[in-house]
Amino acid sequence: MAKWRIEVIEEFCKGCEICVKVCPITNLYNAGRVDKPVLRMSDRFGYQGYPVVEVVDPSKCTGCHLCDYSCPDLAIHVIKE
């Protein structure tokens, strides 16, 4: 299976949570179907003064690219390893 690396550019992230909301695995986690999400909002604040998104378990990423295609600020990138 392909491995994916998720890179968050924290300086660009303005904490809009779009990526967290569209991520299929994170949604499965919210429904209690998997034990860990791929993305979640962290407690840290980024360069723009908003809480930034963080990667929890990249090994569950399916490479669907929904997060990086929907990020308005091009702050999250899914890269094939």
Partner: peptide, 10 residues
């Protein structure tokens, strides 16, 4: 700017 989250830009 844009309104549609599908086509978001800063």
């Amino acid at each position: 700017k844009t309104d549609d989250p599908k086509w978001g830009v800063p």
